[in-house]
Amino acid sequence: MKYYRFFALMSVMFIAQQAFAQEAEQKAIWPVLGKNDTIRVAATNDNGYMIPWIALQEVIITGTRIWKSPQEQAAYNRLRYNVLKVMPYALYAKKRYEQLERDLAITVDKKEQRKLVKACDDEIKKMFNTEIKELTITQGQILTKLIDREVGATTYDIVKQTKGKFAAFSYQLIARVVGHNLKATYNPQEDRDIESIIRSSGYYQ
Score class of each variant (00 low, 15 high):
30 W>D: 09
124 I>E: 12
117 V>E: 13
41 V>N: 03
58 E>L: 15
40 R>G: 14
186 Y>H: 01
72 E>N: 00
29 I>Q: 07
149 R>H: 15
168 A>D: 07
42 A>R: 05
94 K>V: 02
75 A>M: 09
35 K>G: 04
53 W>L: 10
174 I>E: 14
31 P>A: 00
60 I>W: 06
62 T>E: 15
110 K>P: 14
192 R>V: 13
139 Q>W: 01
141 Q>G: 10
136 T>H: 05
199 R>K: 09
121 D>Q: 09
78 R>L: 15
108 V>F: 09
47 N>A: 07
45 N>I: 00
32 V>S: 09
79 L>Y: 10
54 I>E: 11
72 E>Y: 01
110 K>S: 13
198 I>G: 04
27 K>E: 08
188 P>A: 02
23 E>F: 15
166 F>I: 14
157 D>E: 15
132 I>N: 02
50 M>S: 04
56 L>Y: 11
148 D>C: 01
204 Y>P: 07
186 Y>T: 09
25 E>H: 12
97 Y>A: 03
37 D>I: 01
57 Q>D: 13
146 L>S: 00
133 K>Y: 12
67 W>I: 02
59 V>G: 02
129 N>F: 13
200 S>D: 10
199 R>G: 08
71 Q>F: 03
4 Y>H: 11
179 G>T: 03
58 E>D: 12
19 A>W: 15
168 A>H: 02
148 D>W: 06
45 N>F: 13
59 V>M: 08
202 G>D: 01
202 G>V: 00
29 I>Y: 11
132 I>K: 06
34 G>S: 07
96 R>F: 06
118 K>M: 14
175 A>I: 02
78 R>C: 14
203 Y>V: 12
37 D>H: 05
110 K>G: 08
12 V>T: 00
94 K>H: 13
32 V>K: 10
133 K>D: 09
81 Y>I: 01
27 K>T: 11
125 K>G: 08
153 A>K: 10
14 F>Q: 07
75 A>V: 07
144 T>Y: 13
24 A>L: 04
3 Y>F: 10
156 Y>L: 03
84 L>S: 04
21 A>I: 05
87 M>Y: 12
155 T>L: 11
43 A>N: 01
61 I>Q: 08
145 K>P: 14
114 R>V: 02
53 W>M: 09
172 Q>D: 15
193 D>N: 01
94 K>A: 07
180 H>G: 06
192 R>L: 11
145 K>V: 07
19 A>F: 12
125 K>W: 13
171 Y>P: 01
1 M>I: 04
90 A>V: 03
87 M>F: 15
83 V>A: 00
116 L>I: 05
202 G>Y: 00
101 E>I: 09
31 P>T: 00
118 K>W: 13
10 M>C: 01
